[in-house]
Design a protein around this nucleic acid. Structure first.
Lengths: 139, 139
DNA sequence: CATTAGGGATAGGGTTCT
DNA sequence: TAGAACCCTATCCCTAAT
């Protein structure tokens, strides 16, 4: 039918996370037009960003079931690491509770206004890690 | 305790095919709520329809789903189609010119616009036969 | 007219049952 | 081993509200 379903790459996901960190969740069009991210996200719409962000948070919150499934899969032969998908989301998924302070990222400070309501502490930590990774790859 | 596994009856399958003929493949919820089919398919979900349609086509074309998967992997290494240019590649793929006329099915004309892109010649013939069978049984 | 939030539908990989 | 039925969920679509 329409598009054959565009899977999000790790790079795109990292850019989205960095974008949320910089502009806040809900500012999808702003993130999209920010020259810092527009190159990487140029094939995504603002709605795509919103949907992906929702999905990221959903899986982050109730991750235990996935862990059970993944544990089963670890018995299978080949890990088969895909260049595209491996890096980030897998690294970030080991979510122990950390006690760290949020980092400032590139463009400016956190938009603390409503961000606190939208992002949990744990998520924030993950975002910081993702954003760091993203920025390191860029520079 | 889930589902005791409901086998598809010939009547259900014919209704599904007629539904695809009328509304197009992918319009599962539309087919399901069409009063013309809802009575027969009332114990099926839209996802059931999608799954059944996949099975029908896979066995019709290849003989098995696994073979289809393998074949796809061999033929299309990395399509990665850009969202903006999607229509094209799909159109070009099924470009056989049909000289048989599609049947009109009860409620309305074929949505010929995207149907041509979705159904091959062989499939269409089979669908027509199924639809005739379905309509004969109904009337 | 543009954008976003949220519900809902679809696609496609995976799993279970026969 | 195969094939049919069913599950999981990332992605995509529709609509109301702003």
């Amino acid at each position: 039918m329409g598009a054959p379903k565009q899977k999000w790459t790790a790079e795109e996901e990292a850019a989205l996370k960095a974008g949320v960190l910089k502009h806040g969740a809900g500012k999808w069009r702003t993130i999209l037009t920010d020259p810092e991210f527009s190159a990487i996200l140029h094939m995504r719409s603002n709605v795509d960003l919103k949907d992906k962000w929702r999905n990221i948070n959903v899986t982050a919150i109730w991750g235990s079931r996935q862990k059970a499934k993944l544990a089963l899969k670890r018995n299978l032969p080949a890990p088969k690491i895909d260049n595209n998908h491996m890096a980030l989301s897998t690294v970030v998924r080991h979510d122990e509770v950390l006690d760290t302070k949020p980092l400032a990222v590139s463009g400016g400070p956190l938009q603390s206004t409503n961000l606190k309501e939208q992002i949990s502490r744990l998520q924030k930590i993950k975002l910081n890690i993702s954003a760091i990774y993203y920025l390191m790859k860029r520079n």
